[in-house]
């Protein structure tokens, strides 16, 4: 049994009468790239929001890095070591590219108002470290040239990469990417794929929530498929591709729709 970084055990989440997540379990090996897929409304985002503290689970539990994941507020998640990006990019638009990444260091640093106003030696040292680390991360995603620009001036693909760098700045054990390839062109997706593989190679586990099947099948070592809040498949990309339940959930629906239109 491989070393598991993240485990979900029988997670259930209900909204009134709707069971958005129904007894979902999964395991993510440390250092792997893990895919979470499913048709629209399958419960991917709900799962994600429960994991990141936005909702509390009704039943079941999460284990992260050997300990129960017990987050009461969204800001505690980064502290524990899970960083995320957003489906609809959420950068700090009026801040520079460098500052965006520097914000990511917030959770691993501690200088307060006193240190800021009096520029104490420790605060200055920390500030220099933050800046240096941010520059390293910008080099990592190949955005050093734009360090001083406001982040809203970046191209779409660059914004996606910056969001990933900002997430990495929190020194996460696992980074969760919510549809990072959405809206990207083919070249941008290839760059993204290389980046994701590099992040995993450098030791950070990646959880990928994605619609782009080619990306998921190419990059993930392990995939879980959700449909109507239930886990319908769990395995390697080749297993998933052959799984009849998955084909039904995805292609069956699509075929039916095409048929109805014709």
């Amino acid at each position: 049994m491989a070393d598991m970084l993240f485990t979900a055990e029988g997670v259930t989440k209900r909204f009134g009468g709707v069971t958005a997540l129904d007894n979902v379990s999964m395991q993510i090996p440390r250092g792997s790239i893990f895919g979470l897929i499913g048709p629209n409304g399958a419960g991917k985002t709900t799962f994600f929001n429960t994991l990141t503290g936005l909702y509390q689970v009704d039943e079941g539990k999460f284990l992260f890095d050997g300990k129960p994941l017990n987050v009461k507020a969204p800001h505690e998640v980064a502290q524990v070591g899970i960083a995320r990006t957003f489906q609809n990019i959420r950068l700090f638009g009026e801040m520079t590219v460098l500052e965006n990444v520097m914000v990511g260091r917030h959770v691993r640093t501690k200088a307060g108002a006193f240190g800021a106003i009096f520029r104490t030696p420790s605060a200055r040292r920390e500030e220099a470290e933050i800046e240096q680390r941010a520059h390293e991360l910008l080099a990592y995603i190949d955005l050093s040239k734009r360090a001083g620009d406001k982040s809203r001036t970046l191209a779409y693909g660059e914004q996606r990469r910056l969001e990933i760098a900002r997430a990495l700045a929190t020194d996460p054990k696992m980074v969760a990417l919510d549809e990072p390839a959405a809206g990207m062109n083919a070249t941008e997706t290839v760059t993204l794929r290389t980046l994701i593989e590099r992040i995993a190679n450098d030791g950070t586990t990646v959880m990928l929530i994605e619609h782009d099947m080619r990306l998921v099948m190419n990059v993930c070592q392990h995939i879980v498929v959700l449909d109507y809040g239930k886990k319908i498949a769990d395995g390697t990309p080749s297993q998933i591709q052959k799984d009849p339940a998955v084909i039904k959930a995805y292609l069956g629906g699509a075929h039916a729709e095409v048929g109805a239109k014709a």
Binding site: P74, H75, A78, F86, L91, G93, M102, V103
Partner: peptide
């Protein structure tokens, strides 16, 4: 920077552990 992050996007700021 945390203040500015809050101004720009509160949800993202929280996700950064602020």
């Amino acid at each position: 920077r945390a203040w500015q992050a809050l101004r720009e996007d509160e949800i993202a700021a929280k996700a950064m552990g602020i």
